[in-house]
């Protein structure tokens, strides 16, 4: 998993819950990296999982909700770092449907070894998009957060329904209806 996901996560935890909470969850986790992350490095996903679990345990907030919040924060990072990328889109449906074909391609230019989820578009109209999310990470709520923020970015809203195709969340159907 890319380092930027870790550094931004740690920044958010420090921001929202304080340095002590951050110190806690790092110490509580058994991390190969010793909690040392740089945005350009690559680290094991299991470290993220441990940090999330410990944060959830310490705050009583579910992992899905944590991921949702983190995603909303992360979208801000993207807005700051890659404004050009977002500018190429005029419409949230348009942008979401081209995750696979455009955004992930751009990601690979910067992070060639990134392990990215796949989004398969099943249905697409001007106001409706149905996609299948597939990833061994089961971070569908991270995706959901990014999607929410995407609509927000284009000054619109949408109702997004998640249907788990696989119980462990590695395959999830997103049904997006633009309001």
């Amino acid at each position: 998993m890319k380092g930027i996901v870790f550094t931004e996560f740690l920044d958010l935890v420090e921001d929202k819950f304080g340095l002590e909470m951050l110190d806690n969850i790092i110490n509580a986790s058994d991390l190969e990296s010793q909690g040392v992350y740089t945005s350009v490095g690559t680290y094991k996903f299991s470290e993220m999982l441990q940090l999330l679990q410990h944060l959830s345990a310490n705050t009583g907030i579910s992992i899905d909700d944590l991921l949702l919040v983190y995603a909303e924060h992360f979208f801000g990072v993207l807005e700051d770092s890659y404004p050009g990328l977002l500018k190429t889109y005029k419409d949230p449906i348009e942008m979401l449907s081209s995750i696979e074909n455009h955004i992930h391609v751009e990601v690979r230019k910067i992070y060639p070894d990134a392990e990215l989820p796949t989004f398969e578009v099943l249905e697409k109209t001007d106001n409706r998009l149905i996609m299948i999310y597939k990833s061994s990470r089961a971070m569908h709520h991270f995706g959901l957060g990014l999607m929410n923020k995407t609509f927000e970015h284009f000054n619109s809203t949408a109702s997004i329904v998640l249907e788990k195709i696989k119980e462990d969340g590695t395959e999830v159907k997103f049904i997006i209806n633009k309001n």
């Binding site: 340095l19 951050l22 110190d23 909690g35 740089t38 490095g41």
Partner: peptide, 12 residues
């Protein structure tokens, strides 16, 4: 936290 930051910088 500082030690982590230093280490991260060296890593970077």
């Amino acid at each position: 936290a500082l030690a982590r930051e230093k280490a991260a910088r060296k890593q970077a």
